[in-house]
C-alpha cells in the first residue's frame, strides 16, 4: 500500500464565505483572541451585480497545507516541526518547540504564528484529538455546503482519495515563489492562486547552518591535533623532555 498523505480537498465553488470553518477551528483548538489557524481569502474584486462581465463571488479557504517539501521543517533547528513519514502531516511537537520563531517566516503561505498563550509555533494540525475520536477535523465537520473533503489522497478507497484521483487533471494548488508542493487542492475556481511569497529562513538560522561545517572542521582539526600528540606520546617514545627545556632550568 502506498504511503499515506493526509490532505484537504476544497471545492471552492461551494464555499459561501460563511467562515464557519474559521470559527469552528478556533473553538475546537482554543486558538487565542486575534489569532487564526485558517482563513478564507476573497477574490481581488468584490462580487457585483449586473450584466456580464461582472466580478464573480470566489472564495479561497486555506490553512497549513502540510506540504510535500515543507520549508518550515528546514528552518527548525531541533526537529520540533517535522513531516510525519506515516501520515504526511507536518507536525509540531509542542513539548520540544521553544517558540524560537524560525518556522514562521519560512512558511510562504503565512500559515504559522506564535501562539500567544503557549508561546510556541502554532498552525493547523488536522484536529488530531477529533480524529482520534473518529471525527473529521472541525472545519470539515462544520462546513454547511460540504466544500471540504479531508483524508488520505493515496488511498483510492477514501472519499478524499477517490475525489483526488477523479479530478487530478483539474485540481489546482496555491503557487508560491518557493515551491513547497502543498497538499491543499482546490476544485472549482478559488480565485487568485499565486499569492504565496518566498520562504524566508531567518538570518540566525542561516548562520547556524553555515557555521555547522566550520565548527565540525575546527573540532576535527582539534581532534587531529590530539591524535598527533597521542601518537607522538605512544610511538616516538620520548616526549621531548631532556631534548629541550620546558622552562629556564638553571
Amino acid at each position: 500500500m502506498a504511503k499515506q498523505q493526509l490532505a484537504m480537498l476544497i471545492d471552492a465553488a461551494k464555499c459561501i464565505d460563511c467562515k464557519a470553518c474559521v470559527l469552528a477551528c478556533k473553538v475546537a483548538n482554543e486558538v487565542p483572541d486575534g489569532q487564526w489557524r485558517n482563513w478564507i481569502k476573497p477574490a481581488d474584486a468584490a462580487p457585483a451585480p449586473g450584466p456580464a462581465p461582472r466580478a464573480k463571488a470566489r472564495f479561497q479557504p486555506g490553512a497549513c497545507m502540510h506540504c510535500e517539501k515543507p520549508t518550515c521543517v528546514e528552518a527548525c533547528p531541533t526537529g520540533a516541526t517535522y513531516k510525519d513519514p506515516a501520515t504526511g502531516e507536518v507536525v509540531i511537537d509542542e513539548t520540544l518547540c521553544i517558540g524560537c520563531g524560525n518556522c514562521i517566516p519560512a512558511c510562504p503561505y503565512d500559515a504559522r504564528f506564535r501562539n500567544e498563550l503557549t508561546r510556541k509555533a502554532d498552525k493547523c494540525n488536522y484536529c488530531p484529538e477529533r480524529r482520534a475520536a473518529g471525527l473529521a477535523p472541525a472545519c470539515v465537520d462544520t462546513c454547511p455546503t460540504k466544500a471540504r473533503v479531508f483524508g488520505d489522497i493515496n488511498d483510492p478507497g477514501s472519499d478524499a482519495g477517490a475525489l483526488y484521483l477523479r479530478n487530478q487533471a483539474r485540481l489546482t494548488r496555491v503557487a508560491a515563489k518557493t515551491d513547497t508542493r502543498p497538499n491543499m487542492y482546490y476544485l472549482g475556481d478559488p480565485g487568485p492562486g499565486d499569492w504565496g511569497r518566498e520562504a524566508v529562513v531567518p538570518a540566525s538560522m542561516v548562520a547556524m547552518k553555515r557555521s555547522a561545517p566550520v565548527i565540525k572542521a575546527l573540532v576535527g582539526l582539534s581532534g587531529l591535533g590530539v591524535l598527533a600528540m597521542l601518537g607522538r606520546q605512544l610511538f616516538a617514545g620520548d616526549s621531548g623532555e631532556g631534548d629541550h627545556k620546558e622552562d629556564s632550568d638553571a
Binding site: 533547528p77 518547540c97 521553544i98 517558540g99 524560537c100 520563531g101 524560525n102 514562521i104 504564528f113 506564535r114 500567544e116 503557549t118 508561546r119 510556541k120 531567518p202 540566525s204 538560522m205 548562520a207 547556524m208 557555521s211 555547522a212 565548527i215 565540525k216 575546527l218 573540532v219 582539526l221 582539534s222
Partner: peptide
C-alpha cells in the same frame, strides 16, 4: 522563550539558539 517571552523576542531567541551552538562548538574544540 516559551515561559515569559513574547513573539516580539523571537529574533533574539533565534539568535540565542545559533550563538549557543557556535559557542559550545568552539569551546568543545
Amino acid at each position: 522563550s516559551d515561559r515569559t517571552l513574547g513573539a516580539e523576542a523571537s529574533g533574539w531567541i533565534s539568535w540565542a539558539v545559533t550563538l549557543h551552538f557556535i559557542a559550545v562548538g568552539l569551546v568543545f574544540a
